[in-house]
Amino acid sequence: MGIAEYQAYGYFGLTAFLVFALYSYIYHLYSTDKKDGGHDYENYSNIALNDDISDAPVSPISDDKEK
């Protein structure tokens, strides 16, 4: 099998994978805020709006440690 063929299979395979990943990402973005323990992505806009050093983080790093 020549390099061109590897190239073609590689291209097809990777593209198919990325298309799949993109669509599942879109599904994830829009479904997660309805689930328990999910996140509303739109909240992350507040990271910029409330960015004083004394403001409470939107998702504090300490959250993880408690779990």
Binding site: S24, Y25, H28, L29, T32, H39, S59
Partner: peptide, 8 residues
């Protein structure tokens, strides 16, 4: 999985 990626 995606959400995990965004935090690491």
């Amino acid at each position: 999985m995606f959400h995990w990626l965004e935090k690491h």
